[in-house]
Amino acid sequence: MSTHEPPPLTDHFRLLGLAVRLDADPPALLEPLQHVVVRAGDDLPVERTVNVRVVPAGNGLQVDMGEGRPRRLCCTDVALAHIHIVLTRYARDLHAGDTTLHCGAATLDGRLALFTGDRGAGKTTLLARLLLAGADFHCDEYVLTRDGLAITFPRPLHVKPGTLAHLPEVAAVCRRKPLLQHWNGVKYYPVDPEDLGHAWRSVRARPAAILHLEPGFDGPPRIESIAQIEMVKRLMCQTLDQAPDIGRQARDVCALVRGTPCFALRVGPLEDTLDLVRRTLSGLDSV
């Protein structure tokens, strides 16, 4: 069983320039709202403040986020998922000039590594394992990029039930968590690194390496260098902007990849994959 204590309650947090204030009536509703709190530090100035007010409504909750008419939602879990989705959209809107990539990020031994790949490739599971092994976790879903820099977009790890058997320490934390659901039906537990006793923060830096993950869980892990133009192609398939400017995206992706070691990583058993990633990154020149 995990010995980590839940972080203290808070009624405010920041998310890449977005200041969020939580208000609940009755105040006891502030406790479930902690599952949408992002405790990652960042140094960006506040550009927008959002007040989130939650009150009971029949068997569910009414959520007012300043979008006009409040939303009445059937239950706490659906309300939490809704709040998370809207806050993510607000924060991304503040960075509309950046290209958004479907990508995770962690820093190992001072080297920032980006992990991309299709859904189900194992990014969140591998990043959670890296976190438990002492890496600095930054994000598991979004990385923003402009001018060759990666800006990590912090959100709690979205841990799917099927991965818990591989991460017993994370599973112990998830037993205290609600099981939320994405708009596409995928269910997940929201796990903040602080739930596991790890402080975290967003970073803005050049990556030391970019790895494209491919699932291969029933075989040994394998990693190989790939050409930068190949990584550009793969990252262009992982852009997430809702109103894409393809030319700008291509320029941003090329600037990010230029001069960066690129790898294709076949994800095998978790401990073997972790060791392979560590050895690969330790072989790179410090940046």
Rank of each mutant, 00 (worst) to 15 (best):
D64R: 06
N51K: 11
A205H: 06
G283F: 10
P244R: 10
V232W: 00
C139S: 15
L112P: 04
T163D: 06
T260V: 14
G66D: 04
F153N: 11
A172T: 03
P26I: 02
F13C: 13
G122E: 09
N184V: 03
A250K: 11
E224T: 02
D147C: 07
L284H: 03
V277F: 11
R119M: 02
E224K: 10
L87Y: 15
R204M: 11
P215E: 09
R175C: 03
E194A: 00
I210A: 10
G97W: 13
G216A: 09
G134H: 08
V253M: 05
I210P: 02
R204W: 01
P161V: 10
S282C: 14
A105W: 06
G134F: 08
G162H: 14
C174T: 01
L235M: 04
L179M: 01
C262K: 10
P32N: 11
R176P: 01
L126Y: 05
R222K: 10
L144P: 01
H212V: 06
A255Q: 13
L87S: 14
S286C: 00
Y142F: 15
T49Y: 01
M231T: 01
V52L: 07
A209F: 05
C139D: 05
A243N: 06
L29N: 07
R234H: 01
P27E: 07
G219T: 12
L240P: 00
L80I: 13
L132E: 12
V287D: 09
A105G: 12
P168F: 07
R92M: 15
P269M: 07
L33F: 05
R201G: 15
V54M: 11
H182M: 06
V50P: 06
C237D: 04
L157C: 03
L29Q: 07
L33D: 04
S286V: 00
Q181R: 12
T145H: 03
K233R: 11
M65S: 06
H158T: 09
D98N: 14
T100W: 15
L213Q: 07
R21S: 08
E230H: 05
L213N: 05
Q34G: 04
K187S: 10
L29C: 10
T239G: 09
D195A: 00
P161I: 10
L30T: 10
A96T: 13
T116S: 12
